[in-house]
Amino acid sequence: MIRLEDTSGGAVAAAIAEERRRIGSPATGMVLTMLVLADEESQSDATSAAVSAARQHPMRILTLIPRSGKETRLDAEIAVAGEDGPGEVAVLRLRGELANFGNSVAVPLLLPDTPVVAFWPHNAPPVPADDLIGRHAQRRITDLAAEPDPIAALARRKAGYRPGDTDLAWTRLTPWRSALAGALDQPLGQVTSASVFAEDSNASAVLLATWLNKCLHVTVDLVSSSGPGITEVRLETHEGALTLSRPVGDKAMLSRPGAPDSSVALPRRELASLLAEDLRRLDTDEVYGEVIASVSI
């Protein structure tokens, strides 16, 4: 790890290049730049999750942390490809007035001609795409579950949605959606209604209910349960109900009318694996766009 105090964006870029040369791998196959827009409290977890996701998506990670203070200056910590993974990380502390000009620090550090992703571990701006730094990113990742009031934040997210936004509350649903879609690969009678059971204030549950409503064209009830998270999805048909329930742990039980119950793995995933999923495709997640636009709160 290299520390640079009272430095500049250009000097950080030069230091990264120098460090690469020193360890003998100047050529890099990095596919994107990720901007982690965090505060001191969240930066460490968010950065290490990004480093871990970089094992699947080699990338340059720039963690920008605004700091208050009288003195205006940039301090940086740099680490380049090593045991932690193939990417490069720069943790940048923007002190004093510089906190408002993170843009100027990030621009010289963006890898040329490759996608840029912005990630707000919490405290996402109202319109991520309009954010001073977010506007450089074609993919903007937020996390409703990390907001103090996820449901209120969901309403803001809906209002501030621009193509290219995604939220980890949506990413967390992929195993649920996949298991449900898998269950419906075998013909099931007409679904007449559906319910999602989840603890209160769970934004993922709202998104799941909205998605089911849009796909199945039936009323989907959101039923309060004691959690954790989403505990059950129930699709009613004339032949009986198909249920996918996960009361505890990683294992869910799928039961459908006229067939034996089966267990389905529905793991609760770490931040790193959620980020890795989000980075797999960098084009607009149109289904998320449709769903967030239809959320009614």
Binding site: A181, L212, C215, D285
Partner: peptide, 11 residues
């Protein structure tokens, strides 16, 4: 299958 959508690249 109403839950499958070619645009849904996550599934």
């Amino acid at each position: 299958n109403p839950l499958r959508n070619p645009l849904d690249q996550r599934l």
